[in-house]
Simulated assay, not measured.
Amino acid sequence: MEPNKPQNNPVKPNPWEKPLKPKKPKTPREPINFKKYWKLITVLSLALFALIILLTNVYVVKENEYRVVRQFGEVVGIYEEPGIRMKTPFIQSVSTLPKYQMTYDVSEAEINTKDKKRIIIDNYAVWHVVNPRELITNAVTIVNAESRMEEFIYSVVRTELGQLNYDEIINDENSSRGSLNDNVTARVNELLEKDQYGIRVVDVRMKRTDLPEENEQSVYTRMISERDSTAQDYLSQGDAKKREIEAQADREAQEVIASAKKEAALIQSEGESEAAKIYNASFSKDPEFYELYRSLQSYTKTIGDDTVIILPSDSPYAQILSGNLE
């Protein structure tokens, strides 16, 4: 028997595989010669640097703001007209101050009124910057300007309310209460202008007035008592007015009734006078009939259902009753 010989089994090619391409030999690249492009690189670098410097030193002035330019910390320009401007690179800086109106909430404070009542007040102020240079010189920052404004508001409000009673402060119908805000605003502006802080207060308003907790109940009780007393005064005045109107109406009614009775009496007397004239004219034509008529009238008044009359038989009155008219 022959030993087993290795069998040569050829590998069948896969029709789905792409045939491998023979690799091309790599050609060595030439090194870049930077010396050839150094002028172009320098020009582009300088242009980019100039563009960066330009963009970082251009600023825009908006309608509702001030732009303050400082050079080594000193103010060299303040601009408020809208537009595009440029500062000197590296030695100048630009900051912004608001030009629009702002609202500042003043801290609550406790004061004493003229009638020795302790109250807590809460105000707010509407203000704006009118002179940026004065603000930077004397107040330095917006925060410092608001702090000084708050001090002036507290001082003026304490002085103004110290001249009013508590009832005048809480009563909106009182004229002095209505002008308080205007007085405080005007006085605060005088103090700000005197110290040249560069800001102006448009309006100061009192948002709320409260009592300390230990005084609230006693004041409320007193207010209720005063309102009850006022209500009783109104009721008393109403009753007095009612009685006055009723008396006037009764007096006018009595006058109308008396006038009517007087007029009725005149009419009745005129009627009786006219009737008497007619009776006289009628009875004068037949006196005997008149005597008979008067006698019959007297009978109707003297004789009733239970009347008993005792008369002599020969009296004319008895003869008439008996029917003897001769």
Rank of each mutant, 00 (worst) to 15 (best):
V60W: 04
Q248F: 11
F90K: 11
R205V: 15
L20V: 14
L161M: 15
G271C: 03
P13L: 13
P31I: 03
P22Y: 12
S45H: 04
T137E: 03
N123M: 13
T185S: 08
S273G: 15
Y166S: 07
I84W: 08
D195N: 08
N280T: 11
S322Y: 11
F283C: 02
Q101T: 11
E255N: 10
N8Y: 10
M149R: 09
K116W: 06
Q248M: 12
R294N: 04
K262P: 02
K5Y: 03
K242Y: 05
S282C: 08
E244R: 15
V126P: 08
F34A: 08
D203P: 02
R158D: 11
E272R: 01
E193N: 14
L135D: 03
I111K: 12
K194V: 07
G304L: 07
T230N: 09
I84L: 12
P212T: 11
N131D: 00
V202G: 15
A258E: 10
D250C: 02
F289M: 15
A249N: 07
G83S: 09
R294F: 00
V204G: 06
F152K: 02
Y299K: 00
V76A: 02
F283W: 11
P10H: 01
E216P: 00
R294K: 15
A265T: 15
I169S: 02
V43S: 02
V202R: 14
A265D: 14
G162M: 09
S179R: 13
A264Y: 11
E110C: 03
N174W: 14
K114R: 11
N8C: 07
T230R: 10
K277V: 14
P15G: 08
K26S: 13
V143S: 10
Q163I: 14
S313H: 05
D210H: 00
H128I: 03
R205S: 07
A50W: 10
E63D: 13
V106I: 12
S315M: 00
P22N: 08
M223N: 09
V256W: 00
P98M: 04
D203A: 05
F90C: 04
Q196R: 09
E252V: 12
Y79H: 08
R85W: 04
E110N: 08
P31S: 01
P316N: 05
V219E: 11
G304M: 09
M1G: 14
L46R: 01
D122P: 00
V61E: 00
S295I: 11
L180C: 12
S147G: 12
V140N: 13
N112C: 13
P287N: 06
